[in-house]
Nucleic acid binder design. Structure first.
Lengths: 257, 257
DNA sequence: ACAAAAGTGTTTATAATACACCCATGA
DNA sequence: TCATGGGTGTATTATAAACACTTTTGT
């Protein structure tokens, strides 16, 4: 799933941007029973960062976030929400910036731009990894999924941004369409349970989970899936989108806390 | 509770500020069985706005928010948290700004500053109204509490900012020290219930509320308070701060949803 | 036949809800 | 003595938690 970028010349593309204000995206997918996050490797360095970008002078901030998400993933109409704005004066370590920019042999005006103080608004997005085509940005040559248990060091305060985002979805699991966004169309009850467990970071009882979810009437049951495994084949399910969203709006308490 | 400002001359105090970035505060208090919000009236106009301000070049955004809160209320060590950043390109209506600045006879450089596009981060604060000494800012001459049911029109998107803040505390009542911040040291069970009801916007059963809260063991019971009313005198309570905060951290679900 | 995991059922404990009862108080 | 609201109790229902039983499948 690694995709290489073609060489670009750095131009003055940032002339049209709001200075001092950036966006960082925590793009979350679900794979191998674990949450994964999309991160970028800066050209010729060991620096990893979150996908991010800037806001155009006449652009809504939310629109900019959608644009950035789309340009890194190819996806449209994806769940995306703001969770926090990071405004500490020392959130970017200047040495880190200068060092990396030097390695990347960046032209002066872009380097100057990058050296500003930025206040950055964090957005998180929940995507189906299967549908996503990761694309590196102007600073990077690798754009790749990493499981949260194996994240490398990230530049600046990006690790904290990830942590804040994870905290946020944990608290919002009852209110936001988190589960429907992360699973493929059809899935087994076990898939759903593993996902919930990986978000809440705790084990749940299998029988009780199944009963609780079924009683909510938010799932459609489909044909059984033969897996060639030495046990009963599980049913496949899909979300009944309307009922699922109604449930969230009623804030009834979706799963566990 | 109205306080008039003395005349000030507008100076270049904003030279030291981050351009394009502002802070708006939704300062919430509890009075007459209703949530109240602190708002400002711009000099010589009918314009009402939230208390707000800007961030100094070398200042953390959170520090700026604390500074702004303190300068409007005189309070220190108050609960204050960020809830959303408002970045729509058209969130400020330019005509409104220009009109108001003209009426206020503002000098050119301040007017120019005010006409920028601002991305504004919303903070909310929960205060004991009794302890608060509202002070108008440089643009205003009145700084006053208004119950949320009787808010006047607010400038720009400030009404939406208030709504988002209220939504936020509703969702966070189980996680944030909302109740302890809004009530005076000692209060009756009825006071507490009315506060919770005014946040959740629904009626709760008196007997069940009392039992549920008492079972949590987060209150200290004090002497009864004789009110001169034609019925039994109620107990006074105060929060057992540690137990209350522990309860919130455990996210057990504090009251109702 | 067996192990493994699915689907469902049973039991017990805990919590939510509705509302009933008695008590203290001032008019 | 009466209306009012405070404090507490009880009965009913709903939900959570632990775990047991049966079924289906491939080896």
């Amino acid at each position: 799933m690694r995709i290489k970028n073609t060489p670009v010349k750095y131009d003055f593309y940032f002339k049209n941007l709001i200075p001092g204000q950036s966006i960082d995206c925590v793009i979350i997918g679900y794979q191998n029973e674990e949450l994964n996050i999309l991160i970028l490797n800066w050209k010729g360095t060991k620096v990893w960062s979150l996908p991010g970008g800037f806001i155009q002078l006449d652009e809504d901030m939310n629109t900019a976030a959608i644009r950035i998400l789309n340009s890194r993933t190819g996806l449209r109409n994806i769940f995306l929400d703001q969770f926090y704005t990071f405004g500490a004066n020392n959130r970017r370590n200047d040495d880190e910036v200068i060092q990396s920019l030097k390695i990347m042999n960046m032209n002066t005006s872009l380097a100057e731009w990058m050296k500003q103080r930025f206040i950055s608004t964090g957005y998180f997005s929940l995507v189906d990894i299967e549908k996503c085509i990761p694309k590196p940005d102007i600073l990077s040559e690798i754009c790749d999924w990493k499981p949260i248990s194996e994240l490398p060091d990230l530049i600046f305060d990006h690790k904290q941004i990830v942590e804040k985002a994870l905290e946020h979805i944990q608290k919002q699991i009852n209110y936001l369409p988190i589960l429907i966004s992360l699973l493929p169309k059809k899935f087994t009850m076990k898939d759903l349970q593993k996902l919930v467990e990986s978000i809440l970071q705790k084990k749940l009882d299998r029988g009780n989970f199944q009963k609780k979810i079924l009683k909510m009437q938010i799932l459609n049951r489909h044909e059984k899936q033969m897996q060639g495994k030495a046990h009963k084949a599980p049913f496949l399910y899909s979300f009944h989108k309307k009922k699922y969203l109604d449930h969230l709006n009623k804030c009834i308490g979706f799963v566990y806390r």
